[in-house]
Amino acid sequence: MDVFMKGLSKAKEGVVAAAEKTKQGVAEAAGKTKEGVLYVGSKTKEGVVHGVATVAEKTKEQVTNVGGAVVTGVTAVAQKTVEGAGSIAAATGFVKKDQLGKNEEGAPQEGILEDMPVDPDNEAYEMPSEEGYQDYEPEA
């Protein structure tokens, strides 16, 4: 019985440690998101679009440190934060509304985080759909 109880105690310690790591990862992701939003706020009209992409990228980098179902929630929060940063930029006159959601080359930025393969159960990952990809044929 002692062996059984000791095993359960060790398992509990492992769960607590994993929860603490997840909590730490979420806190880091939130900190990076805040950094990115402050970065966007300090940019001029020309830099705002690039700044919004930076927020998304920093958040995406930190999301990889967070495991399990938390990833889905962090990704949703990050996307809403990026959308909010863009709205703030438009409201303050840093950028025109028609410039939001495009990178410096004018290509749409939507789907940055949505296409990231995420499995809350950590069982399997699927690649994003290939609808947006084109076949590449090298020139002879």
Results as ranks from 00 to 15, higher is better:
residue 26 V to E: 00
residue 46 E to H: 08
residue 137 E to S: 10
residue 48 V to P: 00
residue 79 Q to V: 08
residue 16 V to H: 06
residue 17 A to E: 05
residue 136 Y to R: 09
residue 89 A to M: 06
residue 31 G to R: 15
residue 69 A to F: 08
residue 60 K to I: 14
residue 31 G to M: 15
residue 112 I to A: 02
residue 104 E to M: 07
residue 131 E to Q: 07
residue 76 A to E: 04
residue 51 G to C: 14
residue 115 D to V: 07
residue 110 E to D: 07
residue 29 A to K: 05
residue 32 K to E: 00
residue 42 S to H: 11
residue 24 Q to M: 14
residue 93 G to C: 06
residue 40 V to D: 00
residue 108 P to V: 08
residue 130 E to S: 04
residue 88 I to T: 03
residue 132 G to R: 13
residue 113 L to R: 10
residue 113 L to K: 09
residue 80 K to D: 02
residue 123 E to R: 04
residue 77 V to H: 01
residue 7 G to Y: 08
residue 33 T to N: 00
residue 34 K to V: 13
residue 1 M to I: 00
residue 59 T to S: 05
residue 52 V to W: 12
residue 8 L to R: 00
residue 132 G to F: 12
residue 7 G to T: 06
residue 72 T to N: 08
residue 105 E to Y: 12
residue 47 G to K: 06
residue 115 D to H: 12
residue 106 G to M: 05
residue 75 T to R: 04
residue 80 K to Q: 03
residue 67 G to E: 02
residue 48 V to W: 15
residue 44 T to W: 15
residue 130 E to Y: 06
residue 38 L to A: 06
residue 93 G to Q: 03
residue 85 A to N: 02
residue 122 N to S: 06
residue 110 E to G: 11
residue 64 T to R: 14
residue 47 G to D: 04
residue 101 G to R: 15
residue 54 T to N: 05
residue 8 L to G: 00
residue 22 T to R: 01
residue 66 V to L: 13
residue 57 E to A: 10
residue 66 V to W: 10
residue 135 D to H: 10
residue 43 K to G: 00
residue 58 K to M: 10
residue 33 T to L: 07
residue 109 Q to W: 05
residue 52 V to R: 01
residue 75 T to F: 14
residue 25 G to Y: 13
residue 46 E to S: 12
residue 117 P to G: 09
residue 60 K to G: 05
residue 2 D to F: 15
residue 102 K to Q: 02
residue 61 E to Y: 03
residue 64 T to D: 04
residue 109 Q to Y: 13
residue 86 G to P: 05
residue 69 A to N: 05
residue 72 T to P: 01
residue 136 Y to N: 05
residue 140 A to Y: 11
residue 101 G to F: 15
residue 85 A to C: 13
residue 82 V to T: 05
residue 73 G to N: 08
residue 69 A to E: 03
residue 55 V to M: 06
residue 62 Q to W: 08
residue 115 D to I: 06
residue 104 E to A: 12
residue 77 V to Y: 06
residue 46 E to T: 04
residue 21 K to G: 00
residue 34 K to R: 07
residue 86 G to L: 14
residue 48 V to E: 00
residue 37 V to P: 00
residue 133 Y to S: 04
residue 83 E to C: 10
residue 18 A to G: 02
residue 121 D to E: 12
residue 110 E to N: 08
residue 135 D to R: 09
residue 14 G to L: 12
residue 73 G to I: 10
residue 67 G to Y: 06
residue 1 M to C: 00
residue 137 E to V: 05
residue 28 E to C: 11
residue 36 G to A: 14
residue 50 H to Y: 12
residue 16 V to R: 14
residue 138 P to V: 08
residue 130 E to P: 10
residue 133 Y to F: 15
residue 12 K to F: 04
residue 92 T to G: 09
residue 21 K to R: 14
residue 55 V to C: 07
residue 85 A to W: 11
residue 97 K to N: 09
residue 31 G to Y: 09
residue 107 A to V: 07
residue 121 D to S: 08
residue 95 V to H: 14
residue 19 A to S: 02
residue 80 K to F: 15
residue 52 V to N: 01
residue 54 T to W: 12
residue 91 A to V: 12
residue 25 G to H: 15
residue 60 K to M: 15
residue 131 E to R: 06
residue 34 K to F: 14
residue 117 P to V: 13
residue 3 V to I: 07
residue 22 T to W: 15
residue 43 K to N: 01
residue 128 P to K: 07
residue 35 E to V: 08
residue 122 N to A: 05
residue 113 L to A: 06
residue 71 V to L: 04
residue 129 S to M: 11
residue 64 T to P: 02
residue 71 V to I: 13
residue 128 P to L: 12
residue 112 I to H: 11
residue 72 T to M: 14
residue 22 T to P: 00
residue 116 M to V: 01
residue 35 E to Y: 08
residue 63 V to N: 01
residue 113 L to T: 12
residue 58 K to P: 00
residue 62 Q to T: 13
residue 65 N to M: 08
residue 122 N to Y: 09
residue 74 V to S: 01
residue 14 G to I: 14
residue 140 A to L: 12
residue 98 D to Y: 03
residue 72 T to F: 08
residue 1 M to A: 00
residue 126 E to T: 07
residue 27 A to E: 01
residue 79 Q to Y: 09
residue 71 V to C: 05
residue 113 L to S: 13
residue 40 V to Y: 15
residue 78 A to E: 01
residue 78 A to Y: 15
residue 93 G to Y: 09
residue 68 G to K: 13
residue 55 V to E: 00
residue 100 L to M: 05
residue 100 L to G: 09
residue 11 A to T: 04
residue 138 P to I: 05
residue 92 T to V: 13
residue 105 E to T: 09
residue 80 K to G: 02
residue 11 A to D: 00
residue 40 V to M: 13
residue 82 V to L: 12
residue 140 A to E: 11
residue 29 A to V: 11
residue 107 A to F: 06
residue 82 V to D: 02
residue 23 K to N: 01
